[in-house]
Design a protein around this nucleic acid. Structure first.
Length: 410
RNA sequence: GGAGAGGUUCCCGAGUGGCCAAAGGGAGCAGACUGUAAAUCUGUUGGCACCGCCUUCGGUGGUUCGAAUCCACCCCUCUCCA
């Protein structure tokens, strides 16, 4: 059987490890219990988390045991890594509620059932009851402030300022690793490359306290070829929760990524064998790359939502962009009543559908020629909408080239 | 605690009494060209009953015909000193 380390490497995940050879051997030798932490700072996981989940899936497939750690405790502190300012403080209730949402989402991707299955834990369990004096006496003594200050994750904050609260984050995460080592024999922590210093610090703590060797392995963050973080849209992150990012929008996000990022994403976000990925993208010149994009969009949507949802999204997208035919049932839709129809103008309608944030924006868009009703450019912002615009009971609104919205007249 | 610098529209960052809804850049949005791509060019980016009106420049008061700009107090951030 192929060593999962090689798989991860081939697919482009691996960025840094404590010792490449040792970690590789470790993963080849037998089942390893490892963990990845997720701080519940929002009410849904997003694609940045998804890449970590994919890693856990690869690892579980290879016979290793994942611990999905929900950071109910660490979120109380807030990770300063990769941030230029302090995070918004969340209340304990919000954190707990978010943690519950995470929990549900995880169960979709990993097996937790049997005794060898994945484990889901929340570090609130051991972090919240910690006693301050006891903790800093027993563990604080192992941390060198001088050394911590040289860590990359703090360096960037030396100018903008770093509160003592956030400075403690590294200790909390390190303690997690130690706790999971003690409870479940976890000897490997993985995470995004921004977690490198936090993870290392935990491995150090285990060595100092327990005299045992623990390992760190970090992955590339999901970035575009231009180095920008992926998974962001104008309306925020690309969420895994279908309520927050509809399967259609999710599909479209991947369908629209840059040519240069397709191969990358196929490696990181799907399970398509790498030789197929290469076959699809290596030679794909010009418009052929679109096939690879469709494949990517379909696969990721199928994984995150379901093959049925992916199918629907694909059909809707093809119907809209492929020119005629196809099924318009699965695109974003609003309903209006006969009563709404009285004196209904285009701006009001756009507003109702959530396509514009203000009437001013609507005016602007119409002035710029960016609004279409039933594929006819709208030229006046006070154009009225009547029953005649609803052929077959619906009207098709479009904003710009890509944002379609169906309005059903009830 | 002391001294200094600073808090401006989504972000960075100009602006130091009227010509400021506020330069410039980034980012977003739209148009053209395309492959639902990139690059490029153009337009645009507080709100509204939109040739006009209303609300914005950390907060609260004040000076003034008029304040993002001046004054007072307060809050917050950074740097140096303790």
């Amino acid at each position: 059987m192929t060593n999962v380390f090689d798989i991860l490497q081939e697919r482009g995940f691996i960025e840094q490890s404590t010792n490449e050879e040792e970690v590789r051997e470790l993963l080849g030798a037998g089942p390893v219990t490892f963990y990845i932490g997720f701080d519940p700072t929002a009410d849904s996981l997003h694609v940045g988390h998804f890449i970590q989940i994919i890693v856990m899936m690869h690892m579980q497939k290879a016979g290793h045991r994942p611990i999905a750690l929900i950071g109910g405790g660490t979120t109380m502190v807030g990770d300063p890594s990769g941030r230029t300012d302090m995070r918004k403080m969340l209340t304990q209730d919000e954190i707990a509620a978010n943690g519950e949402r995470f929990k549900k989402q995880f169960s979709k991707f990993l097996y937790f059932d049997d005794k060898d299955g994945a484990i889901m834990l929340n570090n609130a369990e051991w972090l919240l009851p910690l006693n301050y004096i006891e903790f800093i006496r027993d563990y604080g003594k192992y941390f060198s402030v001088n050394k911590m200050l040289t860590a990359e994750c703090f360096k960037s904050r030396m100018e903008k300022g770093l509160s003592f609260l956030e400075f403690n984050y590294m200790l909390m995460q390190s303690y997690d690793f130690l706790e999971l080592y003690r409870r479940h024999g976890a000897i490997l922590q993985m995470g995004g490359n921004d977690q490198w210093s936090n993870i290392l610090s935990g491995a150090d703590l285990i060595r100092r306290v327990e005299g045992a060797q623990a390992h760190a392995l970090t992955f590339r963050l999901l970035t575009t070829s231009a180095g920008k973080k992926m998974g962001k849209t104008e309306s925020g992150a690309v969420w895994l929760d279908p309520e927050k990012t509809s399967p259609y929008d999710f599909y479209q996000y991947w369908r629209n990524i840059d040519d240069a990022d397709v191969a990358n994403c196929l490696g990181l976000l799907t399970f398509i064998p790498m030789d197929e990925v290469r076959a699809m993208t290596d030679t794909a010149a010009g418009a052929d790359i679109n096939k690879a994009k469709e494949c990517l969009a379909y696969e990721v949507t199928a994984l995150v939502h379901s093959p049925e949802e992916a199918e629907k999204a694909q059909k809707a997208a093809r119907a809209l962009f492929g020119g005629g035919g196809g099924n318009l049932d699965d695109m974003p839709t609003s309903e209006i009543s006969q009563a709404d129809l009285a004196n209904l103008d285009i701006t009001t309608l756009l507003n109702k559908c959530g396509l514009i944030a203000s009437n001013s924006e609507g005016r602007r868009l119409i002035k710029d020629g960016g609004i279409y009703l039933n594929n006819q450019r709208v030229s006046s912002f006070d154009q009225t909408i009547g029953a005649a615009d609803f052929k077959d009971g619906y009207a098709l609104l479009r904003k710009g080239k890509k944002v379609y919205h169906k309005v059903i007249l009830k």
